[in-house]
Simulated assay, not measured.
Amino acid sequence: MALVSSVHKSHYQLRKFVKVVSEMLLCRFGVAITSQSHTIASDASKPEGERTTHSTYDIEDYRSFLTLYRQVGWAKSDKPSLNLEKIVDVLEECSNDLKLRELTSYVRREALPKMKGDAAVVTLRRLDSGGQVLQELDGHEILDAFLNGEVFHPDPKHDKVIEFLGSVGVEVWLQTWLMITNVVLPTLIGCQMVFWAIRHFDILAESDYSPRAFKLWLDLANPTKG
């Protein structure tokens, strides 16, 4: 009886994860960041103020997207937990398939360290007049301040980070670029891989997916079709 209850709980958890991930991937912001280039380019021959070209991000769409992202990429105490790391644990409990283990190992190696802030790629630094670093922030720290200092439940402990970003004139697009390229996009790609694997390895059935989510799964499974 306990085993049946555990399996039911795991499947309920995975169904909720599938639902949230499909909504993330199909929402306007999710479609934008998975399809656009995030390259920053500079052309010294152009007038000052026009030298840098970069992606633009709709901040209101981003705020809306984060209500979904928070469940899989940040929150740890939700019940059931939809945190990507917890979902990977559940998948490995559900199946010993070697191909699935290769996929979960990849997600653990490539996505989870970035999601958790353990693999900073680019940082912002504030230097004193002698070139010494006074403060340094990576994309995970900026995302923490944005999520928990502005978007959801503003916490005064993030005020110093928000003040720093304002005081050094870091443009909103650059803050957003750091959050997306360093943390959000790698996490979203990891979620997409797990979303695909849950059905591919028969852990959930087609009936566990909404029609919209299953169509997304088919598109991921057959990327050259349609």
Rank of each mutant, 00 (worst) to 15 (best):
V184K: 02
L84F: 11
D208N: 02
A119I: 05
F17G: 07
K215P: 07
P113N: 05
E102V: 09
N222S: 14
S129Q: 10
L178D: 01
W177D: 00
A2F: 14
F65N: 01
P223K: 02
L25V: 03
T34I: 06
G73T: 14
H153W: 12
L143C: 04
S45I: 00
E163F: 01
L66A: 03
S37M: 07
P47L: 03
L66P: 09
L216F: 03
V151Y: 14
S95T: 10
I162L: 15
E85P: 01
V151M: 10
L127K: 13
E92A: 11
H158W: 15
G166Q: 09
K79W: 11
T104K: 09
A197D: 00
P80Y: 08
E85M: 12
K114V: 04
D78V: 00
N222C: 06
F214C: 06
L25P: 09
N83Y: 15
V107E: 06
G30Y: 09
A221E: 12
V90I: 11
E171S: 08
G49S: 04
Q132M: 06
H158P: 03
P223C: 00
A44N: 07
W74R: 08
V183G: 01
L25S: 03
G73Q: 00
D138Q: 01
L147Y: 10
I189A: 10
K19G: 07
M179D: 00
Y57E: 02
E23H: 05
P211Q: 05
E48R: 14
R212K: 11
K114S: 15
W177K: 05
T67L: 11
Q192Y: 00
E85Q: 07
R126W: 08
I162H: 01
V172T: 15
W177L: 04
S55P: 15
T39C: 14
E48T: 14
G30N: 06
H38I: 13
R126D: 07
G117D: 03
S129A: 13
I142C: 08
L82Q: 12
S77K: 04
P186K: 08
D159L: 11
E141N: 12
S129D: 13
R199L: 13
D43I: 10
T34K: 08
A213G: 07
I198E: 02
S81K: 00
L174A: 09
T104P: 08
L127M: 12
W173K: 01
Q71I: 10
R70P: 00
I40F: 04
S5Q: 15
L178R: 12
I87M: 09
K86M: 03
F17Q: 10
V121Y: 09
T181W: 09
A111V: 02
G226E: 12
Q36E: 00
W173G: 06
L66R: 12
V172I: 14
T39D: 14
